[in-house]
Amino acid sequence: MSKRALTFTGLNARSRMIIYISVAVVYLACVFVWGTLLDPSAYAVRFADKFIPPSAGHIFGTDFMGRDMFFRCVRGLSNSLVIGLAASLISSVIALVFGISSAVIGGKFDKAVLMCVDCCMGLPHLVLLILISFMLGRGAKGVMLGVAFTHWPELTRLVRAEVLQLRSSQYVRASYKMGKSRMYVAMRHIFPHVIPVYLVGIVLLFPHAIMHESAVTFLGFGLPAETPAIGVILSEAMRHIATGKWWLALFPGLMLIAAVLLFDVIGENLKRLLNPSSAQE
C-alpha cells in the first residue's frame, strides 16, 4: 500500500518536508556566506554608472551613486540575517529562562513574569523597538537588542505553558516520589520535552526579527545609512521611486520577502515534523 503514497512527486509527505527545509536552509546559508565574504568593491560607488536599469552587467540595476544593487542586496540581506539571528537567539534564551523559571518557581515570580509579558505584548512592537534602539544609540547593537527585547514574550508564554503541563504530569510527579531532585527532573524530563517547541519558536522568531530590523532601519532609527542593509536600501529607494526607478525598491523588497517566507517554511515544516501526530499524515 505504501506505493500509493509515492504517487505525488514521487515522495511522501515527510520527505517533502525535509526537502523544503533543506532548500530553504541552503538558500539562506548561501546568501549569508556570500554576503559576508563579498568584497566591498563589488558594490563600490561609481558615479559614472548611476541609475542603470536591470541589465546583463547589473542584474538588479544600480542606484543614485552607481552602486551595484545585486551585490548590495546580498550584502544587506546577510547583515539582516546576522542581526536577526543574534536577536532571535538572545530573545529565545530570555524566553527559555523566563518560561521555565516562571513555571517552576511559580507564585509571585510567575505573576511578575506574566505581567512583563502582557506589558510587552500590549505595546505595539515597533514603538517599543524604536524606543529601545534609540536609547541604546541606534546602530547594529541598538537594533539587535531592541529586536531581542521585544520578541521574547510569545515564546516565553509557549515555554511556560509546556512546562506547566509537564510539571503536573503523573510521570514527573512519580519521579519526585522516587526521590529525584528538582534538577534531575528539569534536565531529564522537562528540558527534552521543551526542546521541540523551543526550536520551532526560534525559527519562527527569525522572520519577525528580520522584518522589524528592516522596518526600524527604514524609518531611520536603526542601522546607519552607510551600512548596506535592506532597510537602508528601501529607505533610499523611496526617494527615487517617484521618478520611475522601480528596480531600486522591487528587487530588495522581493529578496526580503523571500527570506522571510523561507524562514516561515522552515519553521512550519519543522513544527509538523517534530509533532508526533504527524506520523498519521
Binding site: 505504501s2 503514497a5 511522501n12 515527510r14 520527505s15 504527524s278 506520523a279 498519521q280 499524515e281
Partner: peptide
C-alpha cells in the same frame, strides 16, 4: 481497518 503511519524516519507502514 488499517492505518498508514510513519515509522522511524521516512518509511511508511500500514
Amino acid at each position: 481497518v488499517a492505518f498508514k503511519m510513519y515509522g522511524k524516519g521516512f518509511a511508511r507502514k500500514e
